[in-house]
Amino acid sequence: MNRFTYARPADLAGALREIARDPGARFIAGGTNLVDLMKYDVERPTRLVDVTRLPGLDAIEETAAGGLRIGALVSNTAIAYDARIGRRYPLLASAVLAGASPQLRNAASTGGNLLQRTRCYYFYDAATPCNKREPGSGCPAIGGVNRIHAILGTSEHCIATHPSDMCVALAALEAVVQVAGPGGERAIPFAEFHRLPGDHPERDTTLCQDEIITAVELPPEGFAEHHTYLKLRDRLSYAFALVSVAAALELDGGRIARARIALGGVAHKPWRMPEAEAALAGQPAEAASFALAADRLLAGAQGHGHNDFKIDLARRAILRALSQAAAGTPQSQTDKRIR
């Protein structure tokens, strides 16, 4: 690990001053991804600004619009077991419980979860080239070992995936990311927060180095009746998704009034396709409709060799997830048998 200095500002204004002083400075909250990346020499901050004690960022509160505002320092555990989230946004609680372990969920913050880096093997191995870690050095995953890599939205420079489960649910729920920076506050719709790799795979998000996430806001509609978070992985627990699906439906009798579908493990960001969701509106909630949605969502999906299987896996996962959501039988995250 490189040497760095450590600061613990007392408030948000102090944190923004500290981060602005040094372009190599980084915020640290739960540390569940930053500290391990520092140990692997992937992240080499010159200064760490500890935000864990900033006041006012650790609460889950009602919004005027009828939604919930989750402070950036609220832990993954607090989200997973919050009664209001469990009742109104069970999709979010389920996705959080699908990931990591009690130890990591206790430490991991809401803001930090959004800023997780990819688990691409080459990104983590500082002895190999990686365009995300070292722009211009190349992407050994293309033509290399790429079983866990992306099938949608890739570029010739990067085929990494975003690892978060929580973010897949937040994408489906159309959350809004609240951000503070030297120029004041701004709100970023979830779909615009994470980027596709394009020509700049080193940039995961549209957040600037001198900005801080202050909260994630959930709109009033939580799809509490018909939802599921279906996560498929190499072992039944404590592994990143090969493919995951956050599905949320509003039904009108046997027909779909509204649908939201977000995919994890397949792209550089949670993958949504609003046209595929819109096309489900008015359709009967049955396998044929779900198959059409899967076709649309996966149009243009491309494997890179080892991960070719993900295209078929994603298709089957979408069908199963939409069936679970329509039936009102969401996937259990403790009993992982898939029904």
């Binding site: 450590y6 613990r8 640290i28 739960g30 540390g31 569940t32 500290v35 391990d36 140990k39 692997y40 760490l48 500890d50 864990t52 832990s75 555990t77 372990s101 009690p102 130890q103 990591l104 206790n106 430490a107």
Partner: peptide, 29 residues
């Protein structure tokens, strides 16, 4: 592992179970 995967370093911090390999010592203040 030193990277939060194995749990052998598990302690509690203010009652919360965490991996002490991912907690900076300075954060214990």
């Amino acid at each position: 592992c030193g990277s939060g995967d194995c749990g052998a370093c598990t302690i509690t911090l203010d009652g919360r179970l965490v991996c002490s390999c991912l907690v900076l010592a300075a954060e214990a203040q």
